[in-house]
Design a protein around this nucleic acid. Structure first.
Length: 254
DNA sequence: AATGCGACCAACCGCCTATCC
DNA sequence: TGGATAGGCGGTTGGTCGCAT
């Protein structure tokens, strides 16, 4: 995901696991997993299947807790896991689904092929929180939620559409964003010819799905993904755009 | 070259729920 | 029915890296 480190990160190579005695005086390992531990776990699960994690930990002789084995498998070793940068579509989907479901990371992750809840959560807590801070907003505030839904998301949708057009791909991606559930009306957003957001009040009787069909992701990269360098929604251009929408002027000191 | 700082992310923690006995 | 246990999930921590100074 991040540009700083990616791929098969076995941190134990740099800083090994630590032995801890638990309350039963059994030694358990904590910290980064060793490659050897990984292969033991993978071998076991390929033979016996997932589940019964405490049993797995005991049977394999891994001095890990069942929980630790489960986490390592689900977040790292499981087949089909994709690491690397989120694509624009994935980032947009995260914003959309977070609006719908809140911090239901595992539920959101289910909708993103090969991504883990941990990755989605980390994305939200690093990127989104940071941008909220830069915009002087509380990430949980209605103000920030609105600016994401009514300004950033339609803008991204348009960017994705143009990109799809460019690459001659079908791109029936996103319809206008919808307001927070706390509001009695639903705000519909579109953009004027200058790219300025137009926020309109809507009747709340229209269903969410009617107004904003789900983003389609069939076309996204299945073979490793996250390779679209530069597909960062929080780029300078978009952040500046958000600032202008929020504060109505070019204020890069905010 | 050394240092400080922010970003990133793997792994752990603690709570909640489901299941079993 | 209720206690024990395992699994699942969201929140948090801490190590590492890259960049700025």
């Amino acid at each position: 995901m991040g540009s700083k480190e990616s791929g098969n990160r076995t941190t134990a190579a740099r800083h090994g696991p630590e032995e801890i005695s638990n309350k039963d005086d059994k030694v358990i390992m904590k910290g980064p997993w060793l490659e050897e531990e990984d292969s033991i776990l993978v071998d076991y699960i390929q033979t016996h299947g997932e589940g019964h994690w405490d049993f797995v930990a005991r049977c394999t002789g891994l001095r890990r807790t069942g929980k630790s084995c489960r986490l390592r498998w689900l977040n790292y070793l499981r087949p089909g896991i994709r690491h690397g940068n989120f694509t624009l579509e994935e980032q947009l989907k995260i914003l959309e689904l977070h609006f719908l479901w809140g911090n239901r990371w595992s539920k959101i992750a289910e909708s993103l092929n090969g991504r883990t809840d941990n990755e989605v959560k980390n994305y939200w807590r690093t990127r989104v929180h940071r941008q909220a801070k830069l915009l002087n907003c509380d990430v949980n505030s209605k103000e920030f939620g609105d600016i994401i839904r009514f300004v950033l998301m339609p803008r991204l949708a348009e960017q994705i559409r143009s990109k799809s057009r460019e690459s001659s791909q079908a791109a029936d991606l996103v319809s206008p964003a919808i307001s927070s559930s706390s509001s009695s009306n639903i705000n519909l957003v579109s953009m004027d010819s200058n790219g300025k957001a137009l926020i309109m009040k809507r009747d709340h009787t229209n269903s969410l799905q009617d107004q904003w069909p789900s983003i389609q992701h069939d076309h996204h990269n299945e073979d490793g993904g996250g390779d679209q360098v530069g597909d960062e929604i929080w780029n300078d251009e978009n952040v500046e755009f958000l600032r202008q929408q929020l504060f109505g002027h070019d204020d890069s000191d905010v």
